[in-house]
Amino acid sequence: MKRFQLMRVCLGAVCLSMLAGTLNAADENETKLPTNLPELRETAVKILVEASFSDVPLLRANALEGMQAAPDRALPLATRLLNDPNPAVRYVAVVTAGMLKFDSLSTAIRPLLRDEHPSVQAAAIYALRAVGENIDLTPLAGLLERRDPGLRGNVAQLLGLLGDPSAVPMLNRAALLPMPRVSATDLAVVRIQIAEAMARLGDDDALDALRSGAFSQFDEVRVLAIVAMGEVKDRRMEVALERLADQPPVEIQVAAAGALARMGNTTKVQSVLDAARHVNPIVRGQAAVNFAYFSDDRSLVMLRNMLIDEEPIVRVSAAAAVLKRLSK
């Protein structure tokens, strides 16, 4: 994995309109799929547990992220994956422990303060502070200043999760630090990550960087900026996002529709429904993640169908969305 970033598995509310607790069948022949909400949830859990044992690090990491909606199920996964051979998976495990306040894992996390990968070290500092340990945050400042774009972006994310507004000046300085050997794309990505963290911490001036990023020449940067606007609920951009949700490329459409849904505007669900049928499994996975922001029957049925997609990354994304949505 290029960056140790958490997938944005931030999902929507359960579909309350299904009063009987059953799902409308999208296809008469799909009898093997779950037909009620408890069964759907357990199917999603099973997919994520199985994926956590995958030989593919990305699937292991995404499986744990997806399980965050069910802390009791996430704890054993996080416990095991703290010792994963892949640093990106360890990073996700440590961050999950912090986000879900798994204080029982403090002893297991402490050795990771000396992990060979700086992003894992930073995650360990975050997690220990998040679970109430008295730990010095000063090393995060040094890690934030290193010229590794992935590390800088991860540390910015962790500072945003900690929720301490006093970190804003530090983040602002980091955004201005040069990285002369880094590609223009990576530099732009890091600046979006820093801007999002600052916005999370209450710095409204950082919204300008996110708004500009939505119109970057780099599609990756555009997607990150649009998703971030949804995360921080930048309602001033709602009209612009509605336009973006109707204009290709499809990745931008899905990101914009999901950002709008996060703000309570679900009018662009059709863009996500169309993307769910896309030939590219990455696009289908993106659609699955964003379905979780919606609460209509059609998107829930589509998620159910995506649990048997031929591509593992789509199945894991759909399972994560289902679990978060039904946990609301």
Rank of each mutant, 00 (worst) to 15 (best):
M7N: 13
R8G: 09
L19N: 09
N24S: 10
D27K: 14
K32T: 15
P34C: 01
N36R: 12
E42R: 15
E42C: 04
L48G: 06
L48W: 08
V49R: 12
E50H: 11
E50K: 15
D55L: 12
L58I: 14
L59I: 07
R60T: 04
G66D: 05
R73G: 06
L75Y: 12
L82M: 11
L82C: 03
A88L: 10
A93I: 04
V94Y: 03
L100C: 02
S104G: 01
L105Y: 03
I109S: 03
I109A: 04
R110P: 01
P111V: 01
L112H: 02
R114I: 02
S119P: 13
Q121V: 07
L128F: 00
D136N: 08
A141G: 05
A141S: 10
G142L: 13
L143P: 06
R146P: 01
D148A: 10
D148E: 15
L159N: 00
L159D: 01
S166C: 04
A167L: 07
A167K: 07
L177K: 11
P178Q: 06
P180L: 09
V182R: 10
A184Q: 12
T185I: 09
V190N: 01
R191C: 08
A199H: 02
A199S: 08
R200S: 04
L201W: 00
D203W: 12
L207G: 09
A209D: 07
L210K: 02
R211I: 06
G213T: 03
F215I: 08
V223L: 07
A225Y: 00
G230N: 02
R236A: 14
A240E: 13
A240K: 09
A240S: 13
E242T: 14
L244R: 13
P248E: 07
V254W: 01
A257I: 01
G258S: 08
A259Q: 03
L260E: 02
R262N: 07
K268Y: 04
V272T: 06
R277M: 14
I282H: 08
A287D: 00
V289W: 09
F291N: 01
A292I: 05
Y293V: 13
Y293W: 14
F294P: 01
D297S: 11
R298A: 15
N305F: 06
M306V: 11
D309S: 15
D309C: 12
E311I: 10
E311D: 11
E311R: 12
V314T: 09
S317I: 10
A321E: 11
R325C: 08
K328Q: 10
K328Y: 15
